[in-house]
Design a protein around this nucleic acid. Structure first.
Lengths: 197, 197
DNA sequence: CGTCCGCTTGACTCAGATCAAACTTGGTGG
DNA sequence: CCACCAAGTTTGATCTGAGTCAAGCGGACG
């Protein structure tokens, strides 16, 4: 998956380990961006607060994912990072990384690759969040999670977390799921969902 | 806009122009990924087919957007690209780009920075589209367009296009604008908007 | 064994979608 | 230079569906 993690391990750059409890904050909006993180284990949420107090999950970072890539080129973080479950991360000082990247184009290319993946993920999310109907949005979310050629997928995290990720209330998500199952478009047992033909 | 586009223009790498009719396919899933594209004019859809036969639009690429960045790092395209309206694109051979990136860490860093910018822009868009109230969403859109320290901005394109971009109907946008002007939050003449203090 | 949290469903409300219609603007061609 | 057409803009009336509030169930965990 993310060869960034292994790439970082191979570099001289040392990563400091840090453990987080559920709900613990790794960094907050406005903090000086001095580190880039790799999720070793667990799950972290990148969140932003809207003016009206609502919180939006911008990204769900899982084991192997990098966190706050954009902060490499930004003086401060522009969102909060919070552990959803007990998690461990590796922290790499931004300056060391930038030095390594500037010194070795091959390293830079690896980073580019990881960034490109992020862009794709985010585009998918923009597209998803723009779908107005809750039913269609949930269905699109599921479809995007089913590996090509397969029919089944397991949602990781709770449906409530999914709701936050796709910009719906959890009630709307549950109703959409119930509706889709009623129509026979999907079958579901807990977090395992199967697309109907 | 997309500094990737201007970055590409600045490189020695030449871009081949290509015109597409509505419905014409630029590339299909599984094709060998040999080029990265920049949309010069028009609108292209990136689509994927789900297991249940449905078509999923992953992204709508407009003028200035790059297409298939991820393909730089993948041997084949993983979605279809189709022109929605008459469009023109610039095609950059992947090998030339990769050579330029690998050969010069400074170029690589420029790309990285541009990609990081893309990521931030996209995160901002996700956040914007998630704002539920039409009034607040339009206001946030305007605020994001006003240069720091200034009060005025000119929207490029029509308000109708803005509506599509931020996931509202054009009626909702016009009403939101009228409401904001009524409240005295903004002043507006055509496409020029001034924020009230 | 009790508490917390995810899950689920119901009733009600309201903002934005939808449908409709008129006015304005800009550009094109005769 | 003007007639005309297309597209954007504006406003009104109605409807729909997601948000909100509320309440109950069940499993996980200390």
């Amino acid at each position: 998956m993310s060869d960034i993690a292994s790439l970082l391990r191979a570099l001289e750059v040392g990563g400091a380990r840090r453990a987080l409890d559920p709900g613990e904050m790794l960094f907050a909006t406005g903090d000086r961006a001095e580190r880039l993180y790799v999720v070793d284990d667990g799950r972290l949420l990148l969140r932003r607060h809207a003016a009206d107090g609502a919180t939006l999950t911008l990204h769900v970072a899982r084991a192997g994912n990098t966190l706050a890539e954009a902060s490499l080129f930004s003086p401060s973080y522009h969102c909060d990072a919070i552990a959803e479950i007990p998690s461990r991360v590796l922290a790499y000082p931004k300056h060391d990384l930038l030095r390594a990247i500037r010194g070795d184009a091959a390293v830079a290319v690896k980073f580019l690759s990881a960034f490109a993946g992020q862009i794709q993920t985010l585009r998918g999310q923009v597209q998803l969040v723009t779908i107005r109907s809750a039913r269609d949005r949930v269905l699109a979310y599921i479809r995007a999670r089913v590996p090509p050629g397969r029919r089944r997928t397991e949602i990781d995290g709770s449906w409530k977390a999914v709701a936050a990720e796709i910009g719906l209330t959890h009630e709307a998500v549950y109703r959409a799921l119930a509706g889709l199952e009623g129509e026979g478009r999907i079958r579901r047992r807990g977090r395992v969902v199967t697309l109907a033909r």
